[in-house]
Simulated scan of single mutants.
Amino acid sequence: MYRRRFLVLALGLLAAGGCDGGRGTHTPVAGRLTVVAPAARGQGWDRAARALAMVMIGEGMARTVEVSDQPGSLGAAALGSFAAVRGPFTREGRLLLTGMPMIAGVEIANAASVVDSTTPLARLVGDWAALVVSSGSHLRTFEDFAAALRRDPAEPTVGGRMEGGSDHVLYGMIGKCLGVDTRLLDYAGYSGGTEAEQALYDGRVTALLGSARSFVPGIAAGRLRPLVVSSGERIDGIDAPTLMELDVRLEYTDWCGVLGPRGMSSEDRDAAVALCDRLDASPRWRAVCAANGWNRVYLSGEDFRQWLVTETGRTREVLNDLGLLSTFGTSCWGSCVHRPYM
């Protein structure tokens, strides 16, 4: 039995989607709305922003919606360009997509936290992760992987998306759960899934962490073997246990949410949260989520702000354990590692 508990709730990174239909009949919440995406066009959060824009226009939530791409630095570049309020939200609204990579990027840059730099509005969706190996790997189960990690934390090399991003953070959380020295973990970040998978097939990495959905084709073709998934329940199409089943008290999903500019008035904040509420309740949005396998776990307003404070502190601690922070001024903001079993 694994002897440590580390309970994490983190929710989701969007992908693109679309659906048809006429405009909604409600009065628009915003006139001209700009959605800032911390990604290059056609990648990651850009696709998320365009999905949001499509649904908002389709439901008549705003008269016009423009997507502005601001890639670089794990989202820190987009945050830096997301200045204070320009005008009333109902006339010229601005939203910034955020998620775990941005939270981590800001901490690594030793900049002001996302909570302090913006007005948190809502958490939207998530994407479960999976740990996979090549079909010819000597690691048959997650227990095999965990045993190798305990023998020598630096021996298995795990690949995933960029260093300091959500996959890297998850690896640190798993290592912490298993009681290993997380500073010794060997992680290789790649710019894309194809490059990461090739590194696995070439033997340059031992295993991959990433979006469970992205591994389904390789699993179905017999090229990849899933060892474990990070969801609370098993995932259709992936024959692997959850971390929770294996007594690793960790549930994790790459999360995505939206922020407003710093200094929003209470009236503008209420209007922006109302827009998010309408988005989450939208039949179009729910259809897009269902079609793309996104996990809708909605949280808005003050509840989201408080959750984000806790999540930022938890992320900061893991990044420090991984040796990615130059300074570490706080130990935790009230939600860290649960102690060993009673």
Rank of each mutant, 00 (worst) to 15 (best):
R3D: 12
R5Y: 09
F6P: 00
A15L: 06
D20Y: 07
G21L: 09
R23H: 10
T25H: 03
P28I: 01
P28V: 03
V29A: 08
A30R: 00
R32A: 15
T34R: 01
V36E: 04
V36R: 05
A39W: 08
G42Q: 06
R50P: 02
R50E: 15
L52A: 09
L52N: 02
A53C: 01
V55C: 06
V55A: 12
I57N: 12
G60L: 02
T64H: 05
T64R: 02
P71N: 01
G72T: 08
A76D: 07
A77R: 08
A78L: 04
S81Q: 12
F82Y: 10
A84N: 10
R86C: 03
F89M: 06
R91T: 14
G93H: 07
L96P: 09
I103P: 01
I103T: 06
I103Y: 00
G105M: 04
A112H: 08
V114S: 09
D116M: 07
T119W: 02
A122Q: 01
G126K: 04
S135H: 12
S137D: 02
L139R: 13
F145P: 10
R150M: 13
R150G: 10
R150N: 06
P156F: 05
T157S: 03
L170W: 01
L170F: 03
Y171G: 04
M173E: 02
M173N: 00
I174L: 11
D181M: 04
R183L: 10
D186S: 14
D186V: 04
Y187M: 08
T194C: 04
T194F: 12
E197S: 10
A199P: 01
Y201Q: 14
V205C: 00
L208T: 06
P217M: 07
I219H: 07
I219N: 09
S230M: 03
S231D: 13
S231Y: 04
G232D: 13
G232N: 09
D239A: 13
A240D: 01
A240M: 10
P241E: 00
M244S: 11
L246A: 05
R249L: 11
R249I: 11
Y252G: 00
W255P: 12
E267T: 15
R269I: 02
A274P: 05
R278S: 05
A281E: 11
R286D: 13
A290M: 06
N292I: 03
N295I: 00
R296D: 04
G301A: 12
R305D: 09
Q306G: 11
Q306S: 15
V309F: 03
T310V: 05
G313W: 05
R316T: 10
L319R: 01
N320A: 14
L325Q: 02
T330A: 14
G334N: 02
H338G: 09
Y341D: 15
